[in-house]
């Protein structure tokens, strides 16, 4: 049995080798499905429920892209990727889009041959300590033991921060978020450090969240964004503008509920162009003109997705903060649809 499949695959491989590698958009359309690399389990960002349906903030972006390209937000295959496999999975073509709370950094953008299509969540690294420790600022953590996930940018940021402030610390290496929680709760470390969003969701799951505080200092910039392969600009444009469309939709008040109505009746020319009632924007990227309409209808605009997955109404309870629209003092600033 296995041999057959093996040889069968080799044959397919041989045949496929003869064909030139087509553009990602054509591949996705031919496949009828978007392969989206996601975190195998991160509260609020990507997690399968009991029946295997994926939900979350990053997952919604995958669904929006699938809706824009294929017209159906369900036509996504979610590929769980680990921190180690995510970049290779993208580079080797196993996934078309990486939406896995990945920090946009110089070396990842250049050396790893990825293109970040934008930022869908502005995060930053912070500290959580027990209330009774009496610490109110990260500057008072001199000599503390700190639980830190190994092999991540947070580890380097921590070292930088303590060096810059002339403080010392003892790192306690942990492997995963769950292990970090366990260590921290068991008293294995004074402070737990990771992205603020992670700290918030971790604290929300404690039996006694009121006894733990997240310190005000944010010691690093962690712009998390969707990434695509270097070199396929058309596909990169599609992902970038799908994200922009979700952000712009919030700015202009287009929601999943009123998107049809807006498309038909809105007097605003920018909304008309966005939703494809006017102009030929979709055609410029090889998509139907109502692509953004599908993307918004999939899970709502950026604000709706945020509040449904990680916002203040959810148990995770993240405030918009930096992720508010530029008009609200945040950093979200969609480029104009023109």
């Amino acid at each position: 049995m296995t041999k057959t499949v093996f040889f069968g695959t080799l044959t397919v491989a041989g045949l496929a080798a003869g064909l030139a590698s087509a553009a990602t958009l054509d591949d996705v359309k031919a496949r009828g499905e978007l392969n989206c690399g996601v975190n195998p389990g991160l509260v609020g960002f990507a997690a399968p429920d009991a029946s295997g349906n994926w939900t979350g903030f990053d997952v919604s972006l995958c669904r929006a892209v699938a809706a824009a390209v294929l017209g159906d937000p369900q036509k996504v295959r979610f590929v769980p990727t680990t921190a180690e496999t995510r970049f290779t999975a993208l580079a080797s073509g196993e996934i078309d889009l990486l939406a896995r709370n990945t920090t946009w950094t110089f070396s990842r953008d250049t050396d790893l041959s990825m293109d970040f299509a934008g930022v869908n969540y502005y995060d930053g690294q912070g500290f959580m300590v027990r209330q009774d420790l009496g610490v109110t600022s990260a500057k008072e953590l001199d000599g503390a033991t700190v639980c830190i996930q190994t092999g991540t940018t947070t580890e380097l940021n921590l070292a930088d921060y303590f060096t810059a402030n002339g403080m010392t610390y003892t790192p306690v290496a942990i492997q995963s978020n769950a292990e970090g929680e366990q260590q921290y709760l068991a008293g294995g470390c004074d402070a737990y450090t990771t992205d603020i969003s992670g700290l918030a969701s971790t604290r929300a799951a404690f039996a006694d969240p009121e006894n733990h505080v997240i310190l005000p200092e944010v010691i690093s910039k962690e712009p998390l964004g969707p990434a695509v392969r270097h070199g396929d600009n058309q596909w990169g444009d599609i992902v970038r503008w799908t994200l922009n469309a979700l952000v712009a939709a919030e700015e202009y008040g287009v929601t999943a509920a009123n998107v049809e109505d807006m498309a038909a009746n809105s007097p605003n020319p920018e909304i008309k162009r966005l939703l494809g009632t006017e102009g030929e924007l979709g055609a410029m990227t090889g998509l139907p003109n109502d692509w953004a309409k599908h993307a918004i209808a999939a899970g709502g605009n950026y604000g709706e997705i945020f509040s449904a997955t990680i916002g203040e109404e959810t148990p995770i309870g993240l405030a918009r903060g930096l992720n508010a629209q530029w008009t609200q003092g945040g950093l979200l600033y969609a480029q104009p649809f023109r």
Partner: peptide, 27 residues
């Protein structure tokens, strides 16, 4: 196999379960 993104029972599925807001924090 969890290291290559397959959902093994010990860590793969367990992490997926922990990632739901209902069961986050269970160890």
């Amino acid at each position: 196999v969890v290291f290559v993104g397959l959902l093994d029972p010990l860590k793969g599925i367990t992490d997926a379960v922990r990632a739901s807001t209902d069961w986050k924090g269970i160890y």
